[in-house]
Each structure stands twice: as C-alpha cells, then as structure tokens.
C-alpha cells in the first residue's frame, strides 16, 4: 500500500491524460499486483542472504569483502588497504587475509613485526587509539612472512558486507563495476570508503 501511494504521488503529476482518478488507481493496482505477489512469495522464503550459511559457518559470520583497485594508482592504495585490513582483523572482522606470525606469539608487541609498512604523508595517527590494537604506523615492517589468501570476486557471495575502497580511478574501473554487480546479485550490503 505504501508503494502504491508513492507511485501514485510520483506518477500522478506526470499524467497528461484526463482519466478519472478511480480508473487510474485501478490500473495502477493492476500494474503493481505482480510486485505484490513477488513480495509475498519472498516473505515465505528463508532469508536469502548468506546469513543462513553463515550461521553454520562461523568463518563467514564476520567476513568482510574488500573491493579495491589492483591497478596502478597515483599513490599506493595497497598500503591504505592493508592498513584498513589490519584494523578490521584487529576488531575481529575477517577479510580473508590471514596474518600469521612465525613466532606464534599472540602478544600485541609481536604483532608489530608483521604489520604492513604504511606510507603516509603525516603521522597524525594516535597509536593509542583503541581500535588500532597496537598498530603503530611508524614501524617499518615487512609482509614477507604473511600467509595471505587473496580474495577474488568469487568470494563476494560468502561475505556479509562489501567495503568498496573508492578512488577516482577505481570508480571508473570495470573491476569495480563487476564487483558492485556481484554484490547486487548476491544482495550484499555495501559500505563505501574513500581512499
């Protein structure tokens, strides 16, 4: 009924014909009837997001897919993405990038040994920020001991949320468009961040 009201409010001013309002409304009802039946049938279905899967698979319950530019940018987007991945992982979101420590030491200090090197213009980050969980951008580190599984578009169906790391160049990229389409197909919510 709300949809009908919206349609009516939107379409009525654009009508050029001199139809009687009642006739017009009846036609509109006929038009939206298929939509109503779709809505009813969808309500009878189980949740179609991957949440059904996720409930049985704790690995996917907090899986966040990151869509970002793999092509050459004016600056190194990968560093910013790695920084974002680190924060997400530190806050118990899964990005598919597994950072394993050779020393098998779970202390925060040891985490500093495998942090990605951040190339930043300024060091205005406060390392005491709670969400950083020990992240210190001033430390120069290597990623050579990381064990990483690179996520691809095929993983989008398993994620709970997709974060699109937009840059002006990536916004125009076919890769970005494809991943947004997949996200739409699998009905995944999207968060957009600007890098």
């Amino acid at each position: 009924h709300e949809s009908l009201t919206i349609l009516h409010a939107y379409l009525r001013p654009q009508m050029l014909s001199s139809e009687e309002p009642e006739e017009y409304v009846q036609k509109l009802k006929q038009t939206v009837r298929p939509l109503a039946s779709i809505a009813i049938s969808n309500n009878n279905l189980k949740p179609k997001l991957s949440s059904t899967l996720d409930e049985n698979d704790s690995g996917n319950a907090r899986f966040v897919y990151l869509s970002y530019s793999r092509t050459t940018e004016k600056w190194n987007v990968i560093h910013a993405v790695e920084r974002l991945i680190f924060v997400l992982e530190a806050n118990h979101f899964h990005t598919g990038v597994q950072m394993k420590n050779i020393n098998n030491n779970s202390s925060r200090e040891s985490d500093l040994h495998h942090l990605p090197k951040i190339q930043s213009k300024s060091s205005s980050i406060n390392p005491n920020d709670s969400y950083l969980h020990g992240f210190n951008p001033s430390i120069t580190t290597t990623t050579s001991i990381d064990t990483r599984r690179i996520m691809g578009p095929g993983d989008i169906r398993h994620c709970r949320v997709m974060i699109v790391c937009l840059t002006p160049k990536y916004f125009l990229n076919e890769h970005c468009l494809n991943e947004l389409r997949l996200c739409e197909i699998y009905q995944k919510p999207i968060l957009v961040v600007l890098l």
């Binding site: 930043s120 300024s122 060091s123 205005s124 406060n126 968060l191 957009v192 961040v193 600007l194």
Partner: peptide, 26 residues
C-alpha cells in the same frame, strides 16, 4: 561514504566504519 583519504580522517572515521559494520552484521 566514509572518508579515509588522510591519516587524520582515517583515525577519526575508522571507528565510525567499525560501528557501522557491527550494526550491519547485527
């Protein structure tokens, strides 16, 4: 749309991003 284009914005806005994620994941 969350702006993370500078270190300062990153520090300020990442907590917002995390909160939104938590909300979306319920």
């Amino acid at each position: 749309c969350i702006d993370l284009t500078t270190n300062e914005l990153f520090s300020r806005n990442v907590p917002i991003l995390l909160r939104r994620l938590e909300t979306m994941l319920g």
